[in-house]
Design a protein around this nucleic acid. Structure first.
Length: 583
RNA sequence: CGGGGCGUGGCUCAGCCUGGUAGAGCAUUCGCUUUGGGAGCGAAGGGUCGCAGGUUCAAAUCCUGCCGCCCCGACCA
């Protein structure tokens, strides 16, 4: 490609709307332009990078026996009704109506379409296993698109689906995908962590996320450096020091606490208690068909509730914090004075059934302090198991950095932000059952196909590579996904000798199989150098004054090291450098 | 959906508070000089000031409504 006729609209300044590094650099490097919130146009440079990423994905998917499809993005309502997701997806699904008034939607993912094909065509265990995939545009009406390409409403995803006759087959397909994903992200130059993830309401049994550590990410993950334990915060547990409680009274004692509203208030209140000797009482509403049902979530005073854990503990139902008036209706007190003791009786007297879920860290604790369900009063001497009618014990607490690893003895946990670039998921029979996709076993028995679902966000891989590999001057592409292998910069295109040498290099490099960008613009050298750094091409061959001596400069973007080489040896030298940089 | 911010040439922004002929830098075009790290001088072109309504002799500026975008939160396979 010749830069003079190639569309790379670089920007000198940071665009005002961009916050995260990848967003700024994608815009400045002339790779993307925004069309609307969460909707981007990919310009030639970005699309080249994406094509390289997709080529790597294809190779690795094909290697594990994947077969590439291309399914419609436009889906009829019916198949989404079958799976139950027409309503389950709520406002996140883009919906539209055709001229006849039929409901359609834009695919957010393709379990339904692939399962429909499987149902119609797969009959026998002999046809299994299958791994089907596509690389296709997905549409999700995100409540808040943000951070450039990191959270968008239209994006390209590689999604694959495995179809097996039994769990063992699913386990194999899952493992194949895990390995393929590791190869894909390795090859794309990403440093990542594979974490255990919540399977949530999807009903799956196991799921792993491929996370890239970056402040631009939106997920929190927990990692133990000692043993390699890694989990999404919504799934992570930790070891915390046990607390010895002094024996308390035979029954809780109520005492006045005027003005005390928070855990913190009570720690400094005379006759109060330190936070780890208090019981935090939170009221949540879980959605049910006949209206929201209240529940109490109990935690140690210094612990925080993870709502997803609460939801998971309840079997995946949606939960939300209760409103102040709902709390008062339920317990006759306001949020600062709540407690689990006699809470069910109080609620029942007010005509509500209350469920109590307590965090495991409260198990066996006694002589604790909590609200009395009466404003400005608390209870001390509470023995959790004796005094509170707990329906369910569960891990509800948010893990903090520095806590002990749940898997190994000496390890401590670190919590950090990460970006999800891939997700593999054991679906089981959720879709095959609801949509009736079955096969006959060797015994002639009809069983639902056991499925897995596996995704990779193509734009996120590209953006993550930028988040991970950049400096003050711009992007530093991993060589495997760089838009070009090498840029030939002719410092003064009006100089015949330089131009001819540049042309010669350009032709030779192309002949040798390199993706080459020839910067033949009539610009000052400084501008070309800045632009080359910005767009992040791994190597630059500079044709300047030294061409008089038959020499050109070879510059490595990552190390910023430059060396001189004979024009005739430039191609060979570049080959060497590339070979060396490959791990 | 709640909170905050922004919307003025292609880009980055000033002007708005205190109403009175729309500005700067960069970019673009032309000329001269310059030519290895975002050049200098000179000249030129380019703006429904997000949209609609209102107040006023007069609105980028004040008021109302709407739209769009960004950030925080909620939400989110």
């Amino acid at each position: 490609m010749r830069w003079s006729h190639y569309f790379i609209p670089t920007l000198r300044e940071d665009p005002a709307d961009a916050e995260v590094v990848s967003h700024k650099l994608l815009l400045r490097a002339g790779m993307v332009r925004q069309l609307a919130a969460g909707i981007y146009s990919y310009l030639p440079l970005a699309y080249r990078v994406m094509q390289k990423i997709m080529a790597i994905i294809r190779e690795e998917m094909n290697r594990i026996g994947g077969q590439e499809f291309l399914l419609p993005a436009l889906n009829p309502r019916e198949i989404w009704e079958e799976s139950g997701r027409w309503t389950a997806m709520g406002d996140n699904m883009f919906r539209l109506r055709d001229r006849k008034g039929a409901d359609l939607c834009l695919g957010m993912t393709h379990e339904e379409v692939f399962t429909a094909i499987a149902r119609d065509e797969l009959r026998s265990y002999r046809q299994l296993p299958q791994i089907w995939y596509q690389i296709q545009t997905k549409f999700r009406d995100e409540p808040r698109p943000k951070s450039g390409l990191l959270r968008v409403r239209q994006f390209i995803m590689k999604d694959s689906y495995s179809f097996d006759v039994d769990r063992a087959g699913l386990d194999r397909a899952y493992e194949l995908h895990r390995e393929a994903y590791c190869r894909i992200f390795d090859r794309c130059g990403l440093k990542y962590t594979v974490v255990e993830a919540s399977s949530g309401a999807m009903g799956g049994s196991e799921s792993s996320e491929f996370m890239v550590r970056t402040e631009a990410g939106e997920d929190m993950i927990v990692v133990c450096e000692a043993c390699g334990y890694a989990a999404n915060l919504e799934k992570a547990t930790s070891r915390i020091a046990p607390i010895e409680d002094a024996p308390g009274p035979d029954a809780p004692e109520e005492f006045p606490t005027p003005g005390v509203r928070t855990i913190e208030d009570l720690t400094v209140f005379p006759g109060g208690a330190p936070a780890d000797r208090q019981i935090k009482t939170l009221v949540y509403m879980m959605s049910a068909e006949d209206g929201p049902r209240p529940l109490l979530a109990l935690l140690r005073g210094d612990h925080q509730l993870h709502e997803t854990k609460l939801s998971d503990a309840l079997g995946g139902v949606a939960v939300r914090p209760a409103h102040p008036d709902e709390i008062r209706d339920l317990l006759g007190a306001s949020a600062g004075s709540l407690g689990g003791v006699r809470a069910k009786e109080i609620a029942r007297a007010r005509g509500r059934e209350l469920r109590i879920v307590a965090d495991l860290a409260l198990r066996g604790r006694r002589n604790m302090t909590t609200g009395a369900n009466r404003d400005d009063y608390h209870l001390r001497g509470v023995d959790v198991e004796r005094d509170i009618a707990v329906d369910q014990w569960a891990d509800l607490r948010i893990v903090n950095s520095g806590e002990g690893c749940p898997r190994c003895e000496g390890g401590t946990l670190e919590v950090f932000k990460a970006l999800e670039v891939g997700h593999i998921f054991k679906l089981g029979t959720k879709y095959s059952e609801s949509m009736g996709a079955t096969v006959l076993t060797p015994e002639g028995k009809e069983v639902p196909i056991v499925m897995g679902s596996y995704g990779i966000g193509v734009e996120r891989v590209m953006a993550a590579a930028i988040e991970l590999h950049h400096d003050a001057d711009g992007i530093i592409w991993p060589e495997t996904i760089a838009p070009f292998d090498v840029i030939v910069t002719v410092t003064n295109i009006k100089d015949d000798r330089m131009r001819e040498a540049g042309e010669r290099l350009y032709a030779e490099l192309r002949g040798a199989g390199f993706d080459v960008l020839l910067d033949d613009r009539d610009e000052r050298a400084g501008v070309k150098f800045k632009d080359a750094d910005l767009i992040g091409v791994p190597y630059r061959l500079t044709v300047g004054k030294k061409i008089a001596d038959g020499a050109v400069e070879i510059f490595q973007r990552r190390t910023k090291r430059a060396s001189e080489v004979r024009l005739s040896e430039a191609v060979a030298r570049l080959r060497e450098l590339k070979a060396q940089s490959r791990p």
